Every structure is written in C-alpha cells, then in structure tokens.
Computed example of a mutant assay.
Amino acid sequence: MPAEDATGSPEEITVRDAVSAPDAEGRPRRATRRFPLFTRDTARPEGGGRAAPGDAPAPARQWPVLAVLALVGLGLLLTALDVFRYGTLLIGAALLTGALLRWLLPDVGMLAVRSRFTDIATYGVLGTAIVLLAMMAQPHPWLEIPFLKDTLHFTVSG
C-alpha cells in the first residue's frame, strides 16, 4: 500500500538509488552511509556546519578558515618580502592554529575537510614540520639537531 500524505491522497515515492529504494510501506530497504559506485553527493565532515548562525554574513559564518588563510597569506607576503624565517614561522603557526580551532570548536565551517582526528593530525603535523624547518633554515639556524648533520655527511660521502 503506498504511503499517504496529510490529506490522505497517495504520495509519490522517488527512488534515488538502488541502495535506498523503498519497500512496499515506503521505508528504505537498507539504510547505509555507503554510496553507490558513481557518487553524486558526499557526506559533510563532522564539525563542518557553520561557525556562526545562518543569517550571519558569509565571512562571519566561515571565520575559522578565513583566519587561517589570512595568517598564511601574511606569512607568504613576509616570505616574498625577504623575511623568510618569520614568514614560514607564521605559515606553520597558522596551520597549528587551524588544528587548535578544529579541536576546540564544534563547528568550523570549511576548515573541516575530513574527520576531526584526521584534520587535527594533518594540520598539526604539517604545522610542526614547517615551524621546525623554519627554525633550522640557514644561515644562522635557531635550532640545530646534531644527528642531522651526521646523517647528511653519511649519505653524501657514503
């Protein structure tokens, strides 16, 4: 028997894919998050909702990603203006800020790309690597790791 709407007339059922095709009562035969071979849509990452209410202007709804992008842009500008070490430190700090925002805030808008754990790990590892590389940049590095020099001599002279 087809499903009925509030007026009592039969309601049309639209089948979108074979996985969620309804049974005789109109319920999906199988509920799954798995997508068919050719996807037309993807699931939004957890925390991917707006960071501000829907009636707020677009920049306010996406302030976490805009803050990270502004810091990266400023870092790139500093790097282009020949302040390499401070520019790259700022880029690494921007990624670490993105990891911190992703960890602390429930909804971060477009800063959420993958699962929360994957985003935090990716932003954190890349941000840490960029900060460490900026601190080890020549000339006059702020951070020297002794075994790296020995490793370089071993691989080059080997």
Rank of each mutant, 00 (worst) to 15 (best):
W142I: 02
L132C: 05
V108Y: 03
G124N: 06
T128S: 13
F117E: 13
L133H: 02
P139N: 13
G124C: 08
R114F: 07
L133K: 02
D119Y: 03
M135I: 03
A137M: 14
P106V: 05
P141M: 12
A121V: 15
H140G: 12
A121G: 07
I120Q: 10
G124F: 06
I130R: 06
M110G: 07
M110F: 13
L132H: 00
R116W: 00
V108K: 04
M136W: 02
A121H: 08
I120T: 06
G127C: 03
T118A: 12
M136I: 06
V125W: 08
T128R: 03
G124W: 08
A129K: 06
G127D: 06
D119N: 08
W142S: 06
G127W: 02
M136D: 10
I120A: 02
L132P: 00
W142L: 14
P141D: 10
F117T: 13
A112K: 04
L143R: 11
A137R: 14
M135E: 14
M110L: 14
R116L: 00
H140K: 15
P139L: 12
F117R: 15
G109N: 12
G109R: 13
A137Q: 13
Q138F: 12
R114G: 07
A112M: 03
D107M: 03
V113S: 04
V108T: 14
Y123F: 15
A129Q: 07
A112W: 02
T122R: 14
A134R: 00
W142P: 00
G127Y: 02
A112E: 03
H140N: 15
L126T: 05
T128Q: 03
A134G: 09
M110D: 14
L111W: 02
H140W: 13
G127N: 10
Y123H: 14
L111M: 05
T128W: 02
P139W: 08
I120H: 06
P106G: 08
V113R: 10
R116A: 01
V125K: 07
V113K: 08
Q138H: 12
G127K: 11
L111P: 00
E144Y: 03
P106S: 09
P141W: 04
L126M: 10
G124I: 09
A134T: 01
E144W: 06
D107G: 00
L132I: 03
I120G: 02
G127R: 10
S115M: 05
D119P: 04
P106N: 10
G124A: 09
A112P: 00
V125H: 11
P106K: 11
V131K: 03
F117Y: 08
L132D: 03
A137G: 10
R114Y: 07
I130T: 15
P139R: 15
Q138R: 15
L126R: 01
G109S: 11
A121P: 09
A134W: 00
M135K: 13
A134V: 00
D107I: 01
D119G: 03
R116S: 01
M136R: 15
Y123W: 14
T128E: 05
D107L: 08
P106W: 10
A112N: 01
L132V: 05
E144V: 11
Q138C: 06
L126N: 04
P106C: 08
S115E: 08
T128H: 00
T122P: 10
G109H: 08
T128L: 12
P141E: 13
V131N: 01
G124L: 10
A129S: 12
T118P: 00
G109V: 07
L132A: 11
